[in-house]
């Protein structure tokens, strides 16, 4: 019994040690963001600010157009989310429930497209945008991401588990194919839809390399690109930089704390990294 308790204490000690390693950078970020510039570079460092200086947040917010960056990210995130939910539900429904010539071929081609990682895709994607004269537009930031194969695949797997009898019964009652999708399939697939939505939101908010490449105008920059350039320009002003970083991650961290169980379960089931 004693041996067991000692074992548990050691385990909790180890887990806490790693927990501290995970949290410490966040803690350091937040306390730096509340210090005066002088205190931030003082040695030995203070583990809690002498005076809480909330002004850093206001200063950072005003230094570069952060409101604009936020707005851009919200626009991109919402547009992508709505687009992905609509296009993926429709396509997944056709793959899961309908029979038509070319279905399997198209599905396999889609899966092949999934193997193209974003870094490989940026130059080809950029060249197409140049052809369309879309570089430096909201279209470039949203349209290419309005559909993605991963979401289609995930929803298709889920739609396939809905029994065929249900469909036959609904048709007998005069339900159309589209009505069946709206009234029965989607309400039965809430968990899968939430997973798709969460990946879409986190992915859009955190996206960096694509918006970096396709925008050069300040007014079009989403939050990550805005923050990245802010860091380059203000390379020494760490109180403002940490303040900006804190409000940049706040929306996603908040979402994470509200839906923590759902988000972790979604990641555990998928093979995709956010």
């Amino acid at each position: 019994m004693v041996k067991k308790t000692v074992g548990k204490i050691i385990i909790i000690f180890l887990l806490s040690l790693i927990g501290i390693t995970m949290v410490l950078p966040f803690y350091w970020m937040i306390i730096t963001s509340l210090k005066t510039p002088l205190e931030a570079i003082q040695f030995p460092p203070t583990w809690f600010p002498n005076h809480l200086r909330f002004r850093n947040y206001i200063d950072a917010w005003k230094q570069v157009p952060f409101p604009r960056y936020f707005l851009n990210s919200v626009i991109i995130t919402v547009a992508t989310l709505v687009g992905v939910l609509i296009t993926s539900s429709l396509a997944a429904y056709s793959f899961a429930r309908m029979k038509y010539p070319g279905r399997n071929f198209i599905f396999l081609s889609f899966l092949a497209m999934m193997m193209i990682p974003i870094p490989v895709y940026i130059v080809p994607g950029y060249l197409i945008l140049m052809k369309l004269h879309w570089v430096d537009t909201y279209l470039a930031l949203t349209v290419p991401w309005l559909a993605n194969v991963f979401s289609i695949f995930l929803l298709r797997q889920h739609f396939k588990t809905i029994p065929k009898d249900l469909f036959d019964a609904a048709v007998m009652d005069g339900c159309s194919r589209f009505g069946f999708l709206i009234r029965i399939v989607l309400p039965l697939s809430k968990a899968a839809l939430v997973t798709v939505a969460l990946f879409s939101i986190i992915g859009s908010w955190n996206a960096f390399i694509w918006p970096l490449v396709v925008t050069s105008k300040d007014a079009l920059r989403p939050i990550q690109v805005g923050l990245a350039y802010f860091v380059q320009e203000q390379s020494t002003n760490y109180t403002l930089l940490t303040a900006a970083t804190t409000f940049t991650i706040a929306p996603i961290v908040l979402l994470f704390f509200i839906l923590e169980k759902r988000i972790i379960a979604s990641f555990a089931r998928s093979g995709l990294k956010g």
Binding site: F26, L227, V231, L241, T242, I252, V253, F267, G274
Partner: peptide
Amino acid sequence: IYFLPVITSVIAVSMVWKW
């Protein structure tokens, strides 16, 4: 706690670690 860095953007993480 362990999952917190996963949902944080690489840009934010890079900024904090640079500091």
